[in-house]
Design a protein around this nucleic acid. Structure first.
Lengths: 134, 134, 134, 134
DNA sequence: GTGGTCTAGACCACA
DNA sequence: GTGGTCTAGACCACG
């Protein structure tokens, strides 16, 4: 199963962050396996139609976070030893994310109950694709 | 029930947006009633320890969205006739919000199922408190 | 006590990494305290005579590593809660660093005993300055 | 006593440099004696699982530094007359090496005093083994 | 061919 | 004023 990147220029999320998130997401869900090679920075820049340095920036953050290993002249690979996410940090981040989300939902004038079916629908679409698509 | 603003400098959400969201949220939940007066920009700037212009920007956005009315020299009040949100816009905004949310959850390495109980828990806490908390 | 940056273009160490290292070093030794503000990216670029983006890259890595916090429009500050370095990782990194160092010393044809006085001399010079100087 | 090469892809040191250092180190410590034959580039490339050109580059640097002599069609041998290292160059290289080392130690958040026992420990292990180990 | 670094300059978002 | 993002293009180091 191939791994597809896709970026959207209308979401307000920076390109490089979309790339970072998709890789982290792919690793977390087993779509990207340790040792697997990512596209070259040049190739991905062409595919996604963005500047080379934008890809470099994304891969760089992944390297710092320990998600990938880079060997100059060889390529970029999913790291063998994925740092387990600190469960305390994860929990805190998750709470904050959820609270923010509910604030914004409320700010749209939408009752919280209405989001559950939407979230499930999106999730279902994504898992049925078994990858990340445009 | 008093209305409390709460801003956090570690959430990554800009100050002015936190303020906007909290007012809209307060209105949507009936904590802030039409005609009710908001703090002056100067007072709020002092209370929240942020720059005056940040409050101005937030109140401006609220004015533009029709959530508040500003009376020159008198103050800022929750608008009497809250503009109903355009349902089409609402639907689109909601989808984008949900998709973004799931992306960020995924980027934390958390499976989507785990968010539902958390969302429900936060929602329950809030409805029991009938206010806005950090 | 002021904090001085200095970069050298002859060491082979990239500019941005020299900056990152000096900040981490400053924090580890208490010269930079939590909450303290770093120079603005523009100011530092001028002072060090390097491109703005080089500073941005360095500050960016520090942000990802949790060493500093950035508030857009406000500045860059030493993070309040410094992540304690994982002692196991630190130990491993230290061993590797030392082993590499001894390899290179040996490759220069120098006996290991000769490095101790040199290391001590450099250390003494640095601590007597109580800061980082050009 | 056999001579073992060891390369690690996680140390950040380029492959070709690891090879160069190990040979120079072996010569400096008498493990590799003048006239001794090194593995062929092809053989070593297979053994270490690296690109042929990487070995070529390492052997080239060794040849330039006068550590080995290459006989076309015969092989690569440790040079009979090892060039004595220019003492001025040696001194300068050593200072720079030490300064860099202390920087990296500091960047790990480790106080300088802690490195002395580690360096001594590694040195002791090596002299007792009389070989090169990972 | 691979990735890494640096420069120059533009435009945006935030306080 | 602050930092953030993106582009364009150059040159270097490594395999």
């Amino acid at each position: 199963m191939a791994f597809f990147f896709n970026i959207s220029n209308s979401s307000g999320v920076p390109f490089y962050r979309q790339i970072v998130n998709q890789v982290v997401y792919g690793v977390a869900n087993g779509v990207l396996k340790p040792g697997e090679r990512l596209p070259t920075v040049r190739q991905l820049a062409v595919d996604l139609q963005v500047n080379l340095n934008t890809i470099v920036k994304a891969y760089n953050e992944l390297e710092i976070r320990g998600v990938v290993n880079t060997q100059q002249g060889t390529g970029t690979f999913i790291a063998e030893n994925q740092e387990p996410v600190d469960p305390v940090e994860q929990e805190k981040g998750l709470e904050r994310l959820c609270a923010n989300f509910l604030n914004e939902v409320a700010a749209l004038g939408v009752k919280t109950e209405k989001v559950f079916p939407i979230l499930k629908k999106i999730e279902k679409e994504r898992t049925s694709h078994k990858g990340i698509h445009a």
